[in-house]
């Protein structure tokens, strides 16, 4: 029984309601996409958690390398001109 072929792992994303993004909620095992969708429905939406499901084969997900997180993400830190508070305008203008 231990040399049995493994049933693939899927990552599950649920959209809680229209207007929101699908959000990662967990994973499960299923032999194919339809069974994965059904299992996701039965496992992750028993309490009205959503109205749409995505499933993605875990092995198909590419992730950024944590070793490169400094070069990936730190350079954005000093680009403060991308934020509205960088610019001074007269108070009288009010909200802009």
């Amino acid at each position: 029984m231990s040399d049995e072929k493994m049933i693939p792992l899927w990552e599950v994303f649920i959209r809680p309601r229209n207007g929101l993004n699908h959000k990662h909620v967990g994973s499960l095992h299923a032999a194919d996409g339809e069974l994965a969708l059904q299992a996701a429905r039965d496992v992750y939406t028993r309490r009205e958690e959503g109205n749409s499901i995505w499933v993605v084969r875990a092995e198909d997900i590419l992730a950024s390398d944590p070793d490169k997180s400094a070069e990936n993400f730190d350079p954005a830190a000093d680009k403060i001109y991308r934020h509205p508070s960088f610019y001074d305008i007269p108070d009288e203008v009010g909200h802009m």
Partner: peptide, 11 residues
């Protein structure tokens, strides 16, 4: 037969 089905059948 598998854990996922242990959720589906009770549903």
């Amino acid at each position: 037969p598998m854990l996922e089905e242990d959720l589906s059948m009770p549903n």
